[in-house]
Write a protein that binds this DNA or RNA. Sequence first.
DNA 1: CGGTATCCCGGCCGATACTG
DNA 2: CAGTATCGGCCGGGATACCG
Lengths: 133, 133
Amino acid sequence: MDSTQERPQAQDLPFNVFAKACPSRGTLEHVTGRWGTLTLGALHEGSLRFNELRRRVDGVSEKMLSQTLHALERDGLVHREAQPTNPPRVDYELTPLGHEVAERLLSLIHLLEGRMTDVLSARERYDTTRGDL
Amino acid sequence: MDSTQERPQAQDLPFNVFAKACPSRGTLEHVTGRWGTLTLGALHEGSLRFNELRRRVDGVSEKMLSQTLHALERDGLVHREAQPTNPPRVDYELTPLGHEVAERLLSLIHLLEGRMTDVLSARERYDTTRGDL
DNA sequence: CGGTATCCCGGCCGATACTG
DNA sequence: CAGTATCGGCCGGGATACCG
């Protein structure tokens, strides 16, 4: 409210993602990371097994999927449920917080998918007007 | 379910971010990239000059900010307005599409900032239960 | 099936110096 | 002020092999 406030856009929350040292920035990067976004988006429909997820997120390697899932599980966005059967079966599903995050991510994804023609034509304009410098 | 259906969650849009080759994935990565998210978030309040932006997005280097701005401008999310004065003055502002994107990003950011205590305690639980392996 | 371990390369990214 | 140029380190991330 008063002029001592440094960040007009922030509420009085203790966490500020624009500050380099804030832990929220790390979590934001897990969530918006290359594979984090797609993994959370894929899990929004329901729980999936490791290899189902791998097929769904086209192009992800075992290593990166595993790594991404660990980070998201650690942050409390994904729940891992392993059944000690043989062959093993492990299901991944979103936690309630994970769902809230995924909703916002999907909102962004759908917006972009729906506006890609605009993006593509913007690129073309940019490339042609800059190409002849 | 049946083999003709590849993506249950997608509408019949031509762009599918889950497919490796889809150009929408590239744009998603510009937007959700390490600096893309913060840059768009910072510009949501209003137009900013290069160095204002740099101060606002704590930790970004000149190089990365410049690079990020170019990518976002090319995708039609940011508009660059240069005045040929001396000293030079350049203002960056969001396009209408950029605003729509930034809104969704800020929704995500605010959610995370507000729930970081949950995230932090989830991490602690994860680390302690896994630490004694 | 559901992962982990290891190797290793490209490019992300920061630091520094320079230009208009 | 608003960038570009260049160098170099570090690490994201793919390939492969292996384990329970």
